[in-house]
Design a protein around this nucleic acid. Sequence first.
DNA 1: GTACATTTCAAACAAGTGTTTTAATTTAGT
DNA 2: ACTAAATTAAAACACTTGTTTGAAATGTAC
Lengths: 216, 216
Amino acid sequence: MNKTTTQDKILDAAEQLFASTGFADTSLRQITSLAQVNLAAVNYHFGSKKELIQSVLQRYLSVLMPRLDQEFSQLLSSQKQNDLTAVLSVFIQPLLELNKVQHHGTRTFLQLLGRGYTDVQGHLRWFFNHHYGRTLDKFVLLVQQACPDLPASEIFWRLHFSLGTVVFTMASNQALQEIAAADFNENVEIEGVIHRLIPYLAAGIASPLTLSSQAH
Amino acid sequence: MNKTTTQDKILDAAEQLFASTGFADTSLRQITSLAQVNLAAVNYHFGSKKELIQSVLQRYLSVLMPRLDQEFSQLLSSQKQNDLTAVLSVFIQPLLELNKVQHHGTRTFLQLLGRGYTDVQGHLRWFFNHHYGRTLDKFVLLVQQACPDLPASEIFWRLHFSLGTVVFTMASNQALQEIAAADFNENVEIEGVIHRLIPYLAAGIASPLTLSSQAH
DNA sequence: GTACATTTCAAACAAGTGTTTTAATTTAGT
DNA sequence: ACTAAATTAAAACACTTGTTTGAAATGTAC
């Protein structure tokens, strides 16, 4: 048979357009046109555009987040002192395994994540925290254990700095890849970007407290 | 007298709405309504929404960029070896002086910068590079001098990581400030955020090359 | 094969967008 | 004060958006 349902055709087309153009700048007509499906099918199967967006993200999050949660728990229960690079490296494998759920799943998901935080500030942030807040708490705890000298507020800021790095890099991933290819003859896959990110993030998060940063 | 022209009323209202809501999500009717000005005035005085956006940014960039350019040139001509933190710290004073051009000018401009890079990918990027590419080149050169061990391609990636940090932090500045105030009783001004950013960015950019990052 | 529920389809809807038009008004020069 | 230019104003334009409607088509169970 191998028939893909209308729902799946919509999800596939939507995630592709969302990743490359953003949520707000992708119209339902573009999606249904690419999916070769009637316009009304989106509202019939998903209810609204907002719910379609959440469904697209859920396909990845439902695979990724339990996997991450398990890794975090395992690291938390192990007695040995975890250094920051080890904690951050936990993301690598689960992220790369998203390539199993879709062609270029890792790249697509990370781009979607970037779009999710830059395009819409409201309902996606809530959606994510509401569903996966517990998992996130475990990660923060691990970072705090790895950086015992940093006050919680400083960690808060630095983790958001890091979120910005990841989100922005992934949202503009295509443009960056093109520039890197043109200027440096580099052809970096998404895996390469991840491996470049980890040391950068680890160094930033663990940077020593300075007088100027403490004063404010 | 003290009469503010229609153009200025539009610019003031526009920058305020653009900063808090983004360029795409702010309509001309919102702007003209807040400015208490006729809708057609935008097209009459600025031509189009796109040109209005550029004008809003220009008010700040025309002050900031020549100032930065001068600082960069000075640092380049000085013979002593500049360390990365010193190079990054060059931004602080010129940025804070934007408070002279407008109330909360620094915060507003940085938020606009964030919106500029996340909302629209196309014409603002071109606009910025076209007008201020030379200044940017000087900055990149200074960073390369401060990090002689890093290959140019690695610096390229890390500077874009850093751009992401700044842009994302500034775009979501309001939300972050609110969380920090609620969770840590912290009331951090934009100046405080800048002083927290510098050590984080410096550590990330200067982080040592690792085997894993070199392999990809 | 008939009855029922599910899904598809073309069309229209209501609301919002940036922009243009045309006339009225204000401002400035002589 | 008169004329010409610059500005403001209300209205309409052309277009896109997400969503809804009601009829046709398809699938499913008895």
